[in-house]
Design a binder for these strands. Structure first.
Lengths: 190, 190
DNA sequence: CATCAACGCTAGCGCTGCTAGAGTTCGAAG
DNA sequence: CTTCGAACTCTAGCAGCGCTAGCGTTGATG
């Protein structure tokens, strides 16, 4: 039993190592540079070992996404609780969201843009993801008025997501970013 | 000279054929199904012929994107000019934008999401793209108040883009879509 | 010590975007 | 009418991708 538990522990450590290596490689060179061969070389195992832990490359990306969600939730919470009032809370959370996407583009993409097998908007969604959404909702709540909080939060989130992705894809000029963010916040804080 | 012009004409026709085939294949089965081999087979030429017209697959996708921009601009214009007042104009344009993304997901992706070598937000951007943005701007103008029209249009556009992409990626529940769109419009017409 | 299961490896499949170089076609010049 | 040469398209192949079958080794167990 002790031997078995040691093996399980080592397996768990190796799985964590794979996820970390995938994340580091993606953040350093982008997801297109994350191939199963490079990843296997990085963790110093052969390719098939990856498939004994994950169903495929998608599943590895999903695991990285879950990790990233926790980071995002933490940063949003910090921004929200540090704000002195409701108006600066939603502004701070919005800015933190954008800053996270800017500092961790690969992480942001795997969570919100790339096609990965992750449940969203259901009870099976990762707790960290629900936590991140919850932070947005708490920041939006004081400005919801009579509107449905969930739908309004989704709308605010979508607007932030659009700003972030269009700007990073070169579709929106970077120089007006602060202006756009200000206009968005003005529309959501009445 | 007549012979040369005939050849040039035939070349142009074949180029158009490639673009159309790529678009049809993408709209029917998604961009992941558009491989240079399948595309070559579809136009009944060998692979290298594609590369005598376009620098690479990216360039073919960009050509499809430019075509799609024209379609989008036309639909936005129709929606805007058909509206009886400013309020229903922005609502109609927003709905038309979302409907276009819903009916032509592959086309939408290649214009706004996938990484293609297309100039945006510069004078060199495709006229059709500028026209589409112009339609959005005209719909937004009556509700801009003292705000910068360009930046406000970009913000509105980004919000629509976020709603569309998050919903299609399964990140937002489809059932609240109309509600979210209504909330967004309320915040931009209040 | 012999056995056998668990495990990680090598090798390879079918696919991708892309390209070098051979072979063909066809208008132009003699 | 023949011959030349340029324009053009094809076959074949490269390096890399995600993924997997099956062999060989390792190491705990009876």
């Amino acid at each position: 039993m002790s031997i078995q538990s040691r093996r399980e522990r080592e397996r768990a450590e190796r799985e964590k190592l794979i996820i970390t290596a995938a994340r580091e490689l993606a953040e350093a060179e982008g997801w297109e540079a994350v191939t199963t061969r490079r990843l296997a070389e990085r963790v110093e195992y052969s390719q098939p070992v990856l498939y004994s832990h994950f169903k495929g490359k998608d599943a590895i990306m999903a695991a990285v996404a879950v990790e990233g969600c926790a980071d995002l939730a933490r940063e949003l919470r910090t921004a929200r609780t540090a704000a002195p009032d409701a108006r600066r809370a939603i502004a701070g959370v919005g800015a933190a969201y954008v800053a996270f996407a800017d500092r961790h583009p690969a992480l942001y993409d795997v969570i919100f843009s790339l096609a990965v097998p992750l449940p969203f908007a259901t009870p099976e969604a990762p707790p960290a993801l629900q936590a991140a959404f919850g932070e947005l909702a708490e920041a939006v709540r004081p400005h919801a008025g009579g509107d449905d909080l969930g739908a309004l939060t989704e709308t605010f989130w979508a607007a932030l997501h659009g700003l972030v992705t269009l700007m990073r894809g070169g579709r929106l000029p970077r120089e007006h970013h602060e202006l756009r963010l200000g206009l968005l916040l003005a529309r959501f804080t009445g």
